[in-house]
Design a protein around this nucleic acid. Structure first.
Length: 738
DNA sequence: GACACAACTTAGCAGGCCAATG
DNA sequence: CATTGGCCTGCTAAGTTGTGTC
């Protein structure tokens, strides 16, 4: 079947929009009908593709997928029923409700053996076996939690707190090395979880009456609800998108929903709305904020710190862990990335009754604000989130989860890199396989093989199908359309060149011209035969088919593993290749950044050139020129000092020469540093290094590199990054091989 | 297999903060 | 001491993957 966009539409999802009114639902239905029609149409368009029948033949070729599934399920279930409770004695933990209000956290006091076992025979080759079942021996080893990891506050009773004997609250207690402990292997994510719930957005503060909104030139007092939404628009007035039709249309429609009936009947044209006074007011406010005194700023900082201390941490399995996003997203106007059909829609304010709390049964539950209720409190230890709510733009669920430095995120991250290392071991086999599949009789298999080749060679994303009209039109590998590639049998002296030009995730453009193997080229020609530009290139393929196949090739293998693998292996290779032992530290760091950059380019991690780029570049160049001037000046001085020394061979002259020599050296070093900086910055203009550093590069490669070349780790990772990669920093030595 | 839904990772950007600089 | 500029952090959108149901 052809894969034009209609392909995507089956997914249109009425039911998921929990918060939508009935009216809405009806609308969605209509939409769906329309799409069905489109699909019908497209079927006729390209239904004549030769091996349609193969498709069915191929279904469940071997049934192994199902087997796998079942196995996993079985193993997941087992421990939950019996073991979990038994092992950690969690269910019998005492309740802590009686604790005084202001105590931040309460660990289970009686210290049931909650600590996950320290793995003595720890095997540095982490085995990412998600299906491994915890055996009894290991389970027994789980031992008691050390006192010192608990938050200090919890430990001290009121009296102690009062007499000030308590240690400072953020005392860097010995860092917990979770990576030296046994992992959960049964789908359980935690056994004890206690937290304070989310922090809600501050309530709306109505504008002072002197700040007026004008309609059709006349001042008009808005109801608080309508006024709030109006302020959202006013705050964005300087942005280009308030001029976009879609944005304005969506905004106006949602704004009208908040209006009283009088307002609604009066305000019928957005063009007649004048928000400038409101806009000015907010600008003034932000100026005022900037102009605040130190004391005022400090006060705000302290208040934020207080909130952080109160809400920013949770207790998970007896360890205090930092929460990533404990603040609920404030209401505002939705601005998607790229050409988003929903830009400008109102993002609703989230209330307690929208919130689902997830925590231990035996924890002290978070309190909803006075006079309110949570939507639900549940106790699901198979998930990692603490709080969730459904967002009203796409109807998707949002979560509050832990910081990347937490055990639960760290383990997963570590596992991700281990899976990528697994791929390293069998990537040759897999490559041989897909090359073989380029010749397959079955179209489906050929498409799968060519797509996989792209994912491997070009680090493309999998490319799920998307609902048309719900999001910006972006694609990944499996959802590429004919219009996104051009074939050149010959171009610029190269044979079989494919030109890619499409919008990927976040509507970032992917543009690349690559020579491919002849077979790939021929296959692409075949896939494109008799298709319209808007038809799917891989009409027999989707991410689910692809990933099922990958799963069969290697346990845990999915499309995104290739990105991780190729990114990490590229970094390692590049570092080996371009690091020069003779170089000084800044030059070595430049080499690192260049290796990092090679990865960022591979993964197409782009950024908008910083607004101040040109200027700051000029400044840097000026500095370099000044430094050069200084250098030649000092060199001249050295020369004359030397000349002096020849004439009058006294101590003073000798010292002067030495001094000047050192100065020259120092300045040369400074100059080099500046030049390196300039090169680095220039090369980095449109490339974002952060994303790959944070998500794709096995941190142990970087740690090993630092150790090998005597570069301090904080030259490569800032504080946050060091926290996130603490496991890697602790365990990798200079010989680490990805 | 299609779909709905859930959970979790990956992504770029804005704006605040803070250190370097004049 | 004020200014500047670059880095960091927080934010939240936009992906991928997995699972359950029909």
């Amino acid at each position: 079947m052809s894969g034009d966009h209609s392909h995507n539409e089956g997914q249109v999802d009425c039911g998921s929009r929990i918060n939508d009114s009935h009216k809405h639902k009806d609308k969605y239905k209509e939409h769906k009908h329309k799409k069905d029609k489109e699909r019908e149409k497209s079927k006729h368009g390209n239904g004549d593709f030769s091996d349609k029948k193969h498709k069915d033949k191929m279904k469940h070729k071997d049934g192994s997928t199902d087997k796998h599934k079942e196995k996993r399920k079985e193993e997941k279930m087992k421990p939950l029923d019996g073991k979990v409770k038994k092992e950690n004695g969690f269910a019998s933990l005492p309740h802590v409700k009686s604790e005084p209000e202001d105590d931040a956290y309460h660990s289970p006091k009686n210290n049931k053996p909650l600590k996950r076992e320290r793995d003595n025979d720890f095997d540095s080759d982490f085995k990412p076996k998600k299906i491994k079942t915890e055996n009894d021996k290991k389970a027994k080893k789980r031992k008691q939690e050390e006192e010192d990891i608990k938050p200090q506050k919890t430990k001290s009773k009121k009296g102690e707190v009062a007499d000030g004997k308590k240690k400072p609250k953020q005392e860097p207690e010995e860092k917990w090395k979770w990576w030296e402990e046994e992992r959960y292997t049964d789908g359980v994510k935690w056994k004890f979880l206690e937290h304070k719930g989310p922090v809600f957005a501050p309530p709306y503060e109505p504008l002072p009456s002197k700040v007026k909104f004008y309609y059709d030139g006349k001042p008009m007092k808005l109801s608080p609800e309508a006024e709030e939404v109006a302020t959202f628009f006013a705050k964005m007035l300087d942005h280009e998108y308030t001029t976009k039709d879609v944005f304005r249309k969506n905004f106006f429609k949602d704004w009208r929903k908040e209006m009283t009936s009088e307002e609604k009947s009066k305000i019928t044209d957005l063009k007649k709305c004048d928000f400038t006074e409101m806009s000015e007011y907010f600008k003034a406010q932000s100026e005022a904020r900037k102009a605040m005194t130190k004391e005022e700023k400090l006060k705000i900082k302290e208040e934020n710190e207080r909130i952080l201390q109160q809400y920013g941490f949770c207790i998970m399995d007896n360890h205090k862990e930092r929460i990533a996003n404990f603040r609920i997203e404030p209401p505002g106007l939705f601005r998607g990335r790229g050409d988003h059909p929903k830009m400008g829609m109102l993002k609703r304010r989230i209330r307690p009754k929208d919130i689902i709390i997830n925590c231990s049964k035996d924890s002290k539950y978070p309190e909803p604000p006075p006079g309110t209720k949570w939507k639900e409190i549940r106790h699901d230890n198979k998930v990692t989130w603490l709080v969730s709510w459904t967002e009203n733009i796409q109807g998707s669920i949002k979560y509050i989860m832990l910081n990347p430095s937490s055990r639960i995120k760290g383990e997963k991250d570590w596992q991700k890199y281990e899976t990528a290392r697994q791929l390293k071991k069998c990537v040759d086999r897999i490559r041989a396989q897909y090359r073989e599949d380029w010749k397959s009789k079955e179209m489906k298999i050929r498409q799968r093989a060519v797509a996989l080749y792209f994912i491997d060679k070009l680090a493309l994303r999998a490319g799920n199908e998307k609902e048309e009209g719900e999001t910006a039109d972006t694609v990944g590998c499996c959802s590429l359309r004919v219009e996104h590639i051009k074939l050149y049998p010959e171009s610029e002296g190269q044979e079989f060149v494919v030109e890619f030009d499409f919008l990927g995730k976040d509507s970032i453009r992917y543009y690349n011209r690559v020579p491919v193997e002849k077979r790939v080229f021929k296959n692409l020609q075949l896939f494109m035969e008799n298709k319209e530009p808007e038809d799917d290139l891989f009409d027999r393929l989707n991410t689910s088919i692809l990933n099922k196949h990958l799963q069969e090739l290697m346990d845990g293998l999915t499309a995104k593993v290739f990105r991780t693998y190729n990114a990490s292996i590229t970094l390692q290779q590049q570092l080996k290749e371009i690091t020069n032992g003779e170089d000084n530290i800044p030059a070595k760091i430049l080499s690192y950044n260049r290796a990092n950059r090679a990865v960022a380019i591979l993964c197409n991690h782009q950024r908008a050139p910083p607004k101040t780029f040109e200027k700051s570049m000029q400044n840097l160049q000026a500095k370099i020129d000044a430094k050069k001037e200084q250098l030649s000046e000092t060199k001249r001085e050295l020369k004359s000092a030397k000349a002096d020394l020849k004439v009058r061979r006294d101590e003073k002259c000798k010292k002067l020469v030495e001094g000047k020599k050192k100065a020259v050296q120092r300045i040369e070093e400074q100059l080099m540093k500046l030049e390196v900086q300039a090169t680095d910055r220039e090369e980095n203009k449109q490339i974002a290094l952060g994303t790959s550093k944070l998500n794709y590069l096995d941190p142990r490669i970087s740690v090993a590199w630092c150790k090998k070349w005597g570069v301090s780790i904080d030259k490569i990772y800032n504080k946050t990054q060091r926290d996130k990669f603490a496991w890697a920093i602790d365990m990798a030595d200079e010989d680490y091989e990805f």
